[in-house]
Amino acid sequence: MLQYDFMVNAFAATFIVAVVAGSIGYFMVLRGQTFAGHAMSHVGFAGATGAVLIGLSPLTGLTFFTLLAGLGIGLMGERAQSRDIAIGIVLSLSLGLGLLFLHFYTSFAGQATALLFGNVLGVARDTLWIMLVMGALALVILAVIARPLTFASLQPELAEAKGISPKILGTIFMMLVALAVAESVQVVGVLLVFSLMVAPPATAMLLARRISTGIALAVLFALAQAWIGLVLAYYTNWPTTFWITLLGAVAYLAANGVVHLTQNMR
């Protein structure tokens, strides 16, 4: 299995994505913003198509636009319900803009759409380096804001009284999500990123008492999901993403079961 470059690259790429998605995803689940992650992956399309129209690279457009969306969502929504609305509005606006940009195309828009179909089995060696750098950057930013972000997520009024701005933190975090999503989606695809951002942290939260162990578990579960999924895909030839999402669901259900059993045994 490992004599194939594409498999080695796949393991490496999913390692990076698992670490980033697992840790950022933990905060997304904590803050109830998994919808935002999903929305971000679709927003990039408008940026990619718009960029090509004005002669820029689709990747530049995708990154810039996703960051802009992150900024918009962060600034707009503070309370839980307005976040949902904010995300919904930004998402539908972006999709609409994407349609508008496509309307102005007089030729085939393959270049922009190609960007969105990442495939974990199609990762090139030099892409890995870029992913590593971006992933490290994302983790550094996360490490700096982690504690205030947790505080602001759990007790926003108190955090505000202490001089921490939940709105600014929320916006920085949303832009971080945007960056992480934009960079990984075009490498490994929408579904894979999203499944590693939701199920592993949710499972970790069921089992861990503390924030730090929660994040560690989330990353561990994400990694296990991704790597076991890859191995299963290799030997069954069924789609990689299917296995990874299946493992995620199974892990979550299993953790749920464990929690219920231990509660009943007390």
Binding site: Y4, D5, F6, N9, A10, F108, G110, Q111, T113, A114, F117, N119, L121, G122, V123, A124, R125, T127
Partner: peptide
């Protein structure tokens, strides 16, 4: 080519 089968280019680059 011509962006019809971009996945092919990705697969080729992944296995130099």
């Amino acid at each position: 080519g011509a962006d019809y089968d971009p996945w092919m280019l990705k697969l080729l680059k992944a296995s130099p």
